[in-house]
Amino acid sequence: MKLKHEQSKASRRREQPAKARIDKWVLRLYVAGQTPKAVTAFNNLKLICEEQLKGNYQIKVIDLLKSPQLARDHQILAVPTLVRQLPLPVRNIIGDLSDTERVLVGLDLMGRNG
C-alpha cells in the first residue's frame, strides 16, 4: 500500500512540471580534500541522482579544507557527509554512499522508480 502511495505521489509530481521545478533537489556533499572516500562518495551520489532524479537535482561539493569555517556553520563532523538541502526537511547521510539502499532511504527516494 505504501509503495503504491509513493508511486502515485511521484506520478502526480511528474504530471505537474511547474511544481517539479520548485521541488528541484539541492544536495551538498561535504568532503575534506580529494580523498578516495570523497571521490567514491561523489561518484556514488552522481549515479544515484542520475538514476532517480535525472535533470532535477543540483549537487554542490564543498571542500572543507578550502572553507573550514563552513564545517562549523553547517555542523559537519564526519566526512563525507551528504546533506539534502531541498526538499525540506534537511537530511544528512554520512559515509561514502556505497550502500545505495541506505542512501535511498536516507534521501527518502525509496521506491521512486519502483
Partner: peptide, 20 residues
C-alpha cells in the same frame, strides 16, 4: 536520529573544525 549513514566515513570534519 537525524543522521543516516551509508558506507565508510571518517571524522576529518571534526579535525578541520578543531584545527580551524
Amino acid at each position: 536520529s537525524e543522521i543516516a549513514h551509508s558506507g565508510d566515513y571518517d571524522l576529518e570534519g571534526l579535525f578541520i573544525r578543531i584545527h580551524f
